[in-house]
Structures are given as structure tokens and as C-alpha cells.
């Protein structure tokens, strides 16, 4: 296992050391704490691979091109956001380490630079989202703000086929317990309305023929959500070899 968990890195530091009058204090050596893994569980890998969005995970050869260009990792500077590492942990089935990133992994902004650059054709962005989904459906992570937004967005668009942007904004603010002052909303709303940009409630656009499409999509959505939950947690969950009793 060439790539190591940051928590295992042990630096041997010398606080004050002078040799022949020259200050040589500092980091002298870096060790990796030795450890024996007994709790690796390939269930996460198998589950991610079984999802259409995650099936390319096994092509990854850990080159790190995704992390090197990742805007969350480099531009935003969130060092622990490391798609290469998330994939690695999922590949070896190291749940215990993966669960340390529940508050990080959902923050991918889907810029797709990683998918563009991956030399092995891994759909990194979708794979990372799928790993995040695994953490969520198995109850390891709570529903993240991004997941809540995805849900609000999808419910909104399924209603009429066309997005009602203003209603989505209001719904999402309610979900997060945020509130833009009413006066501010009215001011914005009025200027939008006058410039023909506010299509909400009775003014909302609607795709003709959506009446027949909607039940089909609603059923598909419910089935997909149920399937992914059951396959991760239910009795028919993917096999988990090597799990410690």
C-alpha cells in the first residue's frame, strides 16, 4: 500500500539541537506508524461499482491528476478534499478512514476538470458523488446541504417540467432554516417581475404534455432511490467479504 493515511504520518522533530555551533533543529525524519488493517470491507467498492455513475472507479490507477487540478483542493485550498484519496479508500474498502471525510466529500462543485483530465477515463466527479451517496444511504453521513439542494431542485422540476427558480430559492431557504428579509425579496421580486424574469406560481412556465411524463419520472425516481438504499443496506445488499465478525 504505497499511499498512506495522513493520520499515520509521524514526524520526528528535534526542538533544539546544535552541532558545532550550527543550529540543526527541525524535522529530522518522517515515519509511518506501522499498523495492521483487519477491518477492510470491500462493500463500499462493490456498491460504488454497481451504480451507473460509479462504475468507472476500478479504472483508477491513483496517479493523482484529479487532485492536482481539483479546484476545491487547490484554488479553494481545502486540502483534505482529495478525490484521489477518496477513490483509494473506497478501492481498499477502508470505511473507517472514509468516514472522517463526511463533512468534506459533498463539497465537490462538479466543475468536471478531473473528468476532463483523467488519463484512465474515470468519471471522477460522478464517482466521488457516488462515494458520498454511499456514506449517506448507509447512515454514516447525514444528508448534506448539497443533497438537500439536489432533492429540492429535482422535486421542483418534476412539478411542471420547467424549473420555477423563485420557488426553488424559497424552498431551499426553508430547508436550511435561512431567511432573506421579506422587504429584500419584494424589492428583488418586483424588479424581476417588471423585467419579465419572474415566472413563479401562476406565472410559471409549463411543458405541455408533462402531465403524462410526470408520473413516469416520479416512479423512476422513487424506484432508483429505493434500489440504491436497499442495495447498500437492505437484506440484498452487495456481499461484504472479509468483514470482521
Amino acid at each position: 500500500m504505497p499511499i498512506v493515511e495522513p493520520s499515520l504520518v509521524e514526524v520526528q522533530r528535534t526542538e533544539k539541537l546544535a552541532l558545532d555551533g550550527i543550529d540543526v533543529s527541525g524535522d529530522w525524519n518522517t515515519f509511518l506508524r506501522s499498523r495492521v488493517h483487519t477491518d477492510l470491507d470491500l462493500k463500499v467498492l462493490e456498491w460504488v461499482q454497481s451504480q451507473p455513475q460509479g462504475e468507472t472507479i476500478s479504472r483508477c490507477w491513483q496517479c493523482g491528476t484529479c487532485t492536482a487540478g481539483c479546484c476545491m483542493h487547490t484554488d479553494f485550498g481545502l486540502e483534505e478534499f482529495n478525490p484521489r484519496y477518496f477513490i483509494y479508500l473506497a478501492q481498499i474498502g477502508y470505511d473507517e478512514e472514509l468516514r472522517k471525510y463526511v463533512d468534506t466529500i459533498w463539497r465537490c462543485v462538479s466543475c468536471n476538470k478531473c473528468v476532463e483530465r483523467c488519463p484512465k477515463g474515470v468519471k471522477v466527479e460522478e464517482v466521488v458523488h457516488t462515494i458520498g451517496t454511499y456514506l449517506e444511504v448507509t447512515g454514516i453521513a447525514k444528508e448534506s446541504p448539497a443533497d438537500r439542494f439536489d432533492r429540492a431542485y429535482t422535486e421542483n422540476l418534476l412539478r411542471r417540467g420547467v424549473l420555477d427558480e423563485a420557488a426553488l430559492f424559497r424552498t431551499y431557504e426553508r430547508l436550511e432554516g435561512r431567511k432573506t428579509p421579506t422587504r429584500e425579496l419584494l424589492r428583488l421580486g418586483l424588479s424581476m417581475l417588471l423585467s419579465g424574469r419572474l415566472h413563479t406560481g401562476p406565472l410559471a412556465h409549463r411543458a405541455r404534455g408533462w402531465g403524462r411524463m410526470k408520473p413516469v419520472l416520479t416512479r423512476l425516481m422513487t424506484e432508483d432511490l429505493r434500489r440504491r438504499r436497499d442495495s447498500a443496506t437492505g437484506p440484498g445488499a452487495v456481499a461484504s467479504p472479509g468483514r470482521r465478525p
Binding site: 451504480q51 451507473p52 455513475q53 462538479s110 460522478e126 458523488h129 451517496t133 448539497a146 443533497d147 439542494f149 439536489d150 432533492r151 431542485y153 429535482t154 422540476l157 417540467g161 420547467v162 424549473l163 411543458a207 408533462w210 411524463m213 423512476l220 425516481m221 432508483d224 432511490l225
Partner: peptide, 13 residues
């Protein structure tokens, strides 16, 4: 109809 952007794929392929 709305194309689903980058949001819907996180729920259902």
C-alpha cells in the same frame, strides 16, 4: 423540459 443540469444525476441516473 428542464435538462436536470448537474443535480438530478446525483439522485437517479
Amino acid at each position: 423540459n428542464c435538462c436536470g443540469a448537474t443535480e438530478v444525476k446525483n439522485l437517479s441516473q
